[in-house]
């Protein structure tokens, strides 16, 4: 198992190296000129050339990549061109806020989604099942910015229940912090619920049909025990994998939701850097997102291994 973890970590590293190359090359392919950006519209070719030389932008791409990557490894993410500040502290602040948003969303999606899946499976073909699947499909069939706008209109503008933009920290009080999270989390959750709940439903149905559930019933265990102890444990395994997949969608969703709710997270920073063609910021933000995605998948696989006794205990007992 330890060797397996090491190998997977190695694979994550390799992915990151490749991603850094791709990010580096693609940002350099953008039709922009860093020196012109920095110097503004009144620059002359001479001043631009001088600055390019100073920044090393006239060096061959390989050398530039090498410089950038080795600085990266030392934790130096460079300085933002537009805000003229080091990228790292800005990035970590934003990252922390996005992580909070993502963490809350995942927690809600996994509990509510799995719960809906169980209810739908147990009451299969009856009204709770139909209701849940309609709700789930309504959520998935509309993009998140639509739900974001609807929620802003209903809960923000009409009822003034929750703040519709920005973020708050613990310093502003716990209630305020949570209030700021409600609408973005709900928006993200709506689009992710369908996947998890449908999958939990089908794996739960399969397990409820299995021989060992029939055996548990034949042993006279109450239905609650049969479902929660005997069926659910086995039905949850595939749900772990699906949640990891959903993490990818979640990252995409976060970028959109942060824009709608003016939530100062990584997604918003990324969009900002793209709009302003702030290369160092853009590169750093994309790399961080990639790393998070890879690690989340790794985490899910390890969790699967730990939760599945077939992987944890491989040897046979004679």
């Amino acid at each position: 198992m330890a060797i397996y973890v090491l190998r997977r970590l190695g694979a994550v590293l390799a992915t990151l190296v490749v991603m850094s190359l791709l990010v580096f090359l693609s940002t350099h392919a953008l039709p922009s000129n860093t020196a012109a950006l920095i110097l503004g519209q009144y620059s002359t070719p001479e001043t631009r050339a001088a600055l390019e030389h100073k920044l090393g932008l006239d060096l061959p791409l390989t050398v530039q990549y090498w410089r950038w990557a080795s600085a990266l490894l030392q934790g130096d993410l460079g300085a933002s061109l537009v805000m003229e500040r080091p990228v790292a502290p800005m990035l970590w602040d934003a990252f922390g806020r996005s992580a909070l948003l993502a963490g809350c969303t995942m927690a809600v999606v996994s509990t509510v989604g799995v719960g809906m899946g169980i209810v739908a499976a147990v009451w299969r073909g009856r009204w709770p099942d139909h209701g849940i699947s309609m709700f789930a499909y309504a959520g998935i069939s509309v993009p998140e910015f639509y739900w974001g706008l609807v929620l802003i209109l209903v809960f923000g503008s009409t009822f003034h229940l929750f703040p519709t933009s920005g973020a708050a920290t613990l310093a502003d009080g716990f209630g305020t912090m949570v209030a700021h999270l409600v609408l973005p989390v709900v928006t993200l959750t709506l689009t992710l619920l369908a996947h998890v709940s449908r999958l939990t439903r089908s794996s739960m149905l399969e397990v409820l049909d299995s021989m060992y559930v029939r055996v548990a019933r034949a042993r006279g265990f109450p239905e609650r025990v049969v479902i929660l102890r005997h069926a659910l444990r086995n039905a949850l395994l595939p749900a772990i994998t699906i949640l990891a997949q959903d993490f990818g969608f979640l990252i995409g969703g976060i970028v959109a939701v942060e824009a709608i709710f003016a939530y100062p997270g990584l997604g918003r920073l990324l969009i900002f850097s793209l709009e302003r063609q702030d290369l160092p910021l853009m590169q750093a933000a994309i790399l961080v997102l990639t790393a998070v995605y890879c690690l989340a998948n790794l985490g899910a696989d390890l969790l699967y291994g730990v939760a599945n006794p077939r992987i944890r205990y491989a040897g046979a007992v004679e």
Partner: peptide, 21 residues
């Protein structure tokens, strides 16, 4: 009654045990 007074064993031992317990 099923649990205490009547025991049951089925055909396929390969699927009758709960793999997670």
């Amino acid at each position: 009654i099923l649990g205490r007074r009547i025991g049951s064993v089925f055909q396929d031992p390969f699927t009758a045990l709960n793999p997670a317990l």
